[in-house]
Nucleic acid binder design. Structure first.
Length: 270
DNA sequence: ATATGCACCTGTGTGC
DNA sequence: TGCACACAGGTGCATA
């Protein structure tokens, strides 16, 4: 579910709520995520103090000092919601982290595609190959061009590949390509330099706008306050098959590639 | 290298 | 109302 804007929204909320606080206790109710939770490792968070919360792609990194970091990926349906200390156990609440004097942090994940572990940040294999941050300093058309020109893949598949660029998922890949005027099926090698420049530029625009709107709550995404985002109101093509393009009125198309839906305007996107 | 299919799970919406 | 089925924001693996 959550892509870069949703994870970033959660990061900002959490950083504000738990930075500087001590972790009082950890309760694990369900270990069966995508990979089984290492109970001992997660329980070792108890007693540590939160230094800050950062993000890499769709991963959250909670620095708890002593060279240790709590790594969390929310998968498709994960949420990290901050609640009061007396909050009753919620459905699909797999992990509860008590933050001394502040409240509790609930990790909920109905589909259990998420992941969490504790270790040294530089040892996390899943972070090693992640591509550049689209909102990072120095990300531009040239950065993206270098990573796309060598491949014959369809451009949407490349944007979804976390090794090519960090944090983009199915919603934002579709929205970025719409705003850039490029069809999802275009081959990377055949893209004009100006098109790649546009993709890089609108990627930053779309992701920035979406963070301002606190993410897309197309069904069940919630931020760390349990509140939905509002970027779904700004979606141009995602989940709008059969509806008129907001720009030209042509009918938005849906196609499936590699098991994932692509949405595009046949008139606005070339 | 790349494409495809599937697997991991639960929940929701749709059509019959 | 019940049931079957399609589909969902992610990732990783096996296979061709």
């Amino acid at each position: 579910m959550p892509e870069l804007p949703e994870v970033e929204t959660i990061r900002r909320g959490l950083d504000e709520k738990i930075r500087g606080a001590r972790i009082a206790a950890v309760t694990i109710r369900e270990t069966r995520l995508r990979r089984a939770i290492d109970v001992g490792a997660i329980e070792s968070l108890a007693g540590r103090r939160v230094r800050g919360v950062t993000r890499r792609g769709k991963y959250l990194l909670v620095d708890v000092g002593g060279e240790q970091t709590w790594l969390v990926h929310l998968g498709m349906s994960g949420t990290l919601v901050f609640a009061s200390r007396d909050c009753p156990v919620q459905p699909h609440e797999h992990v509860r982290v008590e933050i001394a004097g502040r409240g509790v942090l609930l990790y909920r994940d109905p589909r259990r595609f998420g992941l969490m572990r504790v270790g040294r940040a530089e040892d996390f294999a899943e972070l090693r190959a992640i591509g550049p941050e689209p909102l990072g300093d120095g990300f531009d058309g040239e950065t993206l061009r270098r990573r796309l020109r060598a491949t014959r893949r369809e451009v949407k598949a490349a944007l979804l590949d976390q090794r090519v660029i960090a944090g983009i998922g199915n919603i934002y890949a579709n929205e970025i390509l719409f705003r850039a005027g490029v069809r999802p099926t275009r081959r990377c090698q055949r893209l004009r330099r100006a098109e790649i420049e546009r993709i890089a530029r609108v990627a930053r625009e779309v992701l920035t706008d979406a963070i301002e709107r606190r993410g897309t709550s197309f069904s069940d995404y919630r931020d760390s306050d349990g509140m939905p985002g509002s970027f779904q109101q700004s979606l141009a093509v995602f989940d709008r098959a059969g509806k008129p393009c907001r720009s030209c009125g042509a009918t938005v198309q849906r196609r499936v590639h590699g098991g994932r839906s692509s949405f595009y305007c046949p008139h606005c996107q070339v």
